[in-house]
Simulated assay, not measured.
Amino acid sequence: MTTGVIETGVGTIRTGVLGGGFMARVHAAAAQAAGSPLVAVASSTPARAADAARRLGAGRIEADAAALVAASDIDVVHVCTPNATHAPYALAAIAAGHHVVCEKPLATTTADARRLVDAAADAGVVAAVPFVYRYHPMVREASARVARGDTGTLLSVQAAYLQDWMLAASDDDWRVDAESGGPSRAFADIGSHLCDLLEFVTGERIARLTAVTRRVFDRRADREVGNEDIAAVLAELGSGAVATLLVSQMAPGRKNGLVLELHGTGESLRFAQERPEELWVGGRHGSQLLLRDPATADAASARLQRMPAGHPMGYQDAFDNFVADVHTAIRGGAPDGLPTFADGLRAAHLTEAVLASAERREWVEVDA
């Protein structure tokens, strides 16, 4: 068993990355920003691994995932591979003694997600899922306002996550194949982010839901489509607040339109991911637009503000903050709001509930 940082404690945290696509680049950049050397990468073929190593600045390539996981000079493995491989790769990394950052969905079934949660707990490793929208400072500002009672009693939630990258029948991706992407695509891929953000900011959980899904094209290019393009969800939170959620990868002009709006008896709050420097605060007798400013922010928000006011922060900054918190946890700290494999399991429960409701056309209780 490799031990790495589990024994060395505060020493340098060394990173290995499985995968070579866009998310691997984001993970690698965040690890390097945290001062972690990118020791090695592995991809689906040696040629792709070599290309990824060049682009990401890795020290070496490994022949395959098994070789990377077996490496004794890696402390944390980032799993950035197709969805169906997440569970076996993450389990192998845990068994080898590594800490793990696994892309969402953590697994394509709740059984596999629970197996990962249990394995990480038994091994005593840090195991995190990058629900990184939690790491926008203005999201933390929103959650702080809810926690201290400014919003009052939560009444309703209006939320959406809209993209357009799968708009045409010719738009194709491995995710449309259920064997690689899993039984859910739009909801598991981006709806999971939306629900995590909703539950994180409100401090409440979705208790029950009813859903409709739509698959617009049965085939894309030369591939059979095995999962949904659109999901619409009506949900009830634990307090009785009602929520509507629309998730689509076929909304023309929407590139990454994640929006969360809360309505309470005291105020409303609206965060839009494409305008991450702002938080809209609505009141019956007037509204205001709060701009990110570490000088006036809540402490939970200020700790994530790497730049002074007026110097925009964005998605990579949020990801950098997430990986920095992973490293803090590896060194024995307990950073507030770090999304773990338990949050990945929660997303798997919600995904299965959405698919079950859509199939049966009925309300479904969401497992804890």
Rank of each mutant, 00 (worst) to 15 (best):
A113Y: 11
R114K: 11
R114T: 11
R115K: 12
V117N: 11
A119F: 13
A119G: 12
A120S: 15
A123F: 10
G124P: 14
G124L: 13
V125C: 14
V125Q: 12
A127C: 12
A128Q: 10
A128W: 09
A128I: 09
V129I: 13
V129T: 14
P130R: 03
V132D: 07
V132C: 13
Y135L: 13
H136W: 14
P137W: 12
P137I: 12
M138W: 09
V139Y: 04
R140F: 08
R140E: 14
E141V: 01
A142R: 03
A144Y: 06
A147Y: 05
G149I: 08
G149Q: 06
D150E: 14
D150G: 02
D150N: 07
T151F: 10
T153S: 14
T153E: 15
L154A: 04
L154K: 04
L154P: 06
L155I: 14
L155K: 05
V157M: 08
V157W: 04
A159F: 07
L162R: 11
Q163Y: 06
Q163E: 15
D164L: 10
M166V: 04
L167I: 09
A168Q: 13
A169R: 14
S170V: 13
D171L: 06
V176R: 02
E179N: 07
P183V: 00
P183G: 02
P183T: 00
R185F: 11
R185I: 00
F187C: 00
F187G: 00
A188I: 00
I190E: 07
S192P: 07
L194A: 10
L194G: 01
L197V: 11
L198S: 04
L198V: 15
E199R: 01
F200W: 07
F200P: 00
T202L: 08
T202G: 03
T202K: 01
G203P: 08
E204H: 03
L209S: 07
T210N: 02
V212M: 10
R214Q: 11
R214D: 12
R215H: 05
V216K: 08
V216G: 04
R219A: 14
R220L: 07
R220F: 05
A221Y: 06
R223G: 07
V225R: 03
G226C: 05
G226Q: 03
G226P: 10
N227R: 01
E228Q: 06
E228C: 05
D229G: 02
D229F: 00
I230T: 08
A232H: 09
A235D: 01
A235N: 01
A235F: 01
E236T: 12
E236I: 06
E236K: 01
L237Y: 06
S239N: 10
A241C: 05
A241F: 02
T244D: 13
L245K: 01
L245P: 00
L246T: 15
V247K: 00
V247L: 03
Q249D: 09
Q249P: 02
Q249K: 08
A251W: 12
A251T: 14
A251N: 12
R254Y: 15
K255Q: 15
K255V: 15
L260G: 05
L260I: 14
L260S: 10
